[in-house]
C-alpha cells in the first residue's frame, strides 16, 4: 500500500471511522428513542430504563400485522412475476435470432430511464379501467416486466457456452427444458443478486403504492408507516420511531445477517 505510514494515514483512518460513526448515528438514535420511555428521547442517560412499551403501543395503534402481510405478498408476487417474465425475455434476447431484436431490446431499455413511478397519472387511469385500484396486483403489475432484470439476465445468459445448449438439444431437450436445466441453474447468482435488489426496492417503494391503495387490506408497510407517522396524526415521537423500526426490521435484519451477499448483489447488479 502506498504511503501507509506517518501521521496523515492515521488521520485518514480516524476520519474514516468518524464518518462511519456519523453515518450510523441517526439509526442508533432511532434505536435509543424506540427502546426508552419518551422522556429520554432527548436525554442521553446511560442508566435510562429500557422498555418495549413504544413497540407495544405502535403495534396496537396501527395494523402492522396486516401491513407486513401486504408487503410480503407484494414483494413475493413481484419477484415471481419478474423472474418468469424476465427469464423468458432475456432468453429470447440472448439466444434467438429474430427480426427486430435490436429495436425491441432498445425499447425494453427505455424503462431504465422512464420508471413506472414517473407515469403515475396515466398508470392510475389504466388501473382504474382494469378495476385494479386498491389491489395488491395493482401495485405490483407495472413492475413485473423489469428492463433491469431482462438486461441482467440477458448478460448472464450470453456467457453460457453454446455447446451446453447444443448438447442438451442432442439429448432431446425442448427449449423450455434447456432454459430450466441449463440456463437458469448457471445464472443462480444473478437471480440472487437481482432478487435482493428487487426485494429491497419494493419493500421500500412508496409513491406508487400510496397512489394506488386506499385501504388497510392493501397498503404496504411504507404507506402504512407514512399515515401512522404523519405529524398531523399526533402520535408520540418515541412510538413513531418504534413503528419505523418495526417497518424496517425484516430488511435491516436480513441485511445485517447477509451483509456480504447484499453488498455483492448490489455490486454485481451495478457493474453489468
Amino acid at each position: 500500500m502506498i504511503g501507509y505510514h506517518g501521521i496523515g494515514v492515521w488521520l485518514e483512518k480516524a476520519a474514516a471511522w468518524l464518518l462511519a460513526l456519523l453515518w450510523i448515528s441517526p439509526l442508533i438514535y432511532a434505536f435509543w428513542a424506540a427502546f426508552h420511555p419518551a422522556i429520554y428521547a432527548t436525554r442521553f442517560d446511560l442508566l435510562a430504563p429500557l422498555t418495549l412499551d413504544n413497540f407495544r403501543e405502535a403495534w396496537s395503534q396501527a395494523p402492522f400485522a396486516r401491513y407486513y402481510l401486504n408487503t410480503f405478498l407484494l414483494v413475493t408476487g413481484i419477484l415471481i412475476g419478474q423472474f418468469v417474465l424476465c427469464t423468458l425475455a432475456a432468453y429470447a434476447f440472448a439466444r434467438f435470432e429474430f427480426s427486430g431484436r435490436n429495436i425491441a431490446f432498445a425499447l425494453v431499455l427505455v424503462q431504465l430511464m422512464i420508471m413506472p413511478e414517473v407515469l403515475i397519472v396515466e398508470n392510475y387511469s389504466t388501473m382504474s379501467k382494469l378495476g385494479l385500484v386498491d389491489t395488491i396486483s395493482g401495485i405490483g403489475l407495472p413492475y413485473i416486466a423489469s428492463a433491469f432484470g431482462i438486461f441482467l439476465l440477458r448478460q448472464t445468459f450470453k456467457t453460457v457456452p453454446q455447446e451446453l445448449e447444443d448438447a442438451a438439444r442432442v439429448e432431446g431437450c425442448s427449449w423450455l427444458q434447456v432454459l430450466l436445466k441449463v440456463y437458469v441453474p448457471l445464472a443462480r447468482s444473478t437471480y440472487l443478486a437481482y432478487g435482493l435488489v428487487s426485494v429491497s426496492y419494493h419493500w421500500n417503494n412508496f409513491l406508487w403504492p400510496l397512489i394506488i391503495t386506499n385501504s388497510v387490506e392493501t397498503r404496504p408497510l411504507t404507506v402504512g408507516l407514512a399515515i401512522f407517522g404523519a405529524p398531523e396524526s399526533g402520535v408520540e415521537w418515541s412510538i413513531i420511531t418504534a413503528g419505523t423500526l418495526l417497518a424496517v426490521a425484516p430488511l435491516l435484519l436480513g441485511f445485517l445477517l447477509f451483509q456480504r451477499q447484499f453488498v455483492q448483489s448490489f455490486m454485481r447488479a451495478g457493474i453489468k
Binding site: 462511519a20 453515518w23 450510523i24 421500500n204 420511531t241 413503528g243 419505523t244 417497518a247 424496517v248
Partner: peptide
C-alpha cells in the same frame, strides 16, 4: 465501517424521513 456507510441505503425513504424529522 462499510456496514455503517451502506445501511442508510436499505432503509425506505419514509423511515429515513421519520427519523430525520425529529
Amino acid at each position: 465501517v462499510r456496514m455503517a456507510y451502506f445501511t442508510p441505503t436499505i432503509l425506505p425513504m419514509i423511515a429515513v424521513a421519520n427519523i430525520w424529522l425529529f
